[in-house]
Amino acid sequence: MVYFLNYLKKTVFKSSFWGILLMLLFPLLLRANYLEEYVAASKGTSAQVFYENLSFDSLLNVPATDQVGYYASIETVLEAHDRQADTFFLVFSEHYLKQNPVDVKDIASLERAVSLGKFLIGKETKYYAIAADYVFTTVTDAMTIGFKEETLDKSNDAILSIVAELKKQQYLVSIPTSNLDKGIHHLKKGNLKYIWSRLWFDYPVLCIVGVLSFCFVIYLMFKKVKKS
């Protein structure tokens, strides 16, 4: 029995480990191979012909883990064959967002787009910067609309961490704030003048009634104290 279990461990479990590993790496290897083969085969062709015949679909299934590593491997292949990686990623970003439109309901899709943007923004050239701007602007605009239309939950930490990451990259997502939230925010900051001015402009009659009622209560209290 022990011998049988050991045999299983050595064969089935071991082979399934390699199987899983192969299953995970195979698409990556396939994509890398495709690009390598294509780049090698199209040596000497113009950039226009290169992009016209390149199958972006074969490259757009970005692995869920180590996306940066995947992009870096593409960059390495291109540079090894004297192809401009920056122009490639500019076209790639456009194809990527066309195939994977930013969906504010799918946090993972937002995170994936942000990680592509972060890979691009770290580079120095103009086309990398433009590609990064394209990706970040698309995410920022989608999230701003999401908050406006209340399809995004502004109390969700995962969403707020994306907002913070975009802010770190100098992209501001506008989050609408209710008047009550604004009031509480400024009350905490002790900005009473602002609260009063907003109340006065929006509800003048209510303000007058409030002040009169307050004065009346003070008067009653004063009278009571005097009596006792």
Binding site: T137, L160, V163, K167, Q169, Q170, L172, S174, K182
Partner: peptide
Amino acid sequence: LSKTNGALPVGLNVENGYIKNRTV
């Protein structure tokens, strides 16, 4: 008022050559 720290200018913004907000 957004729940990330520090006030950021709304709209495209550069201060004395330093980019503060890239969102148009």
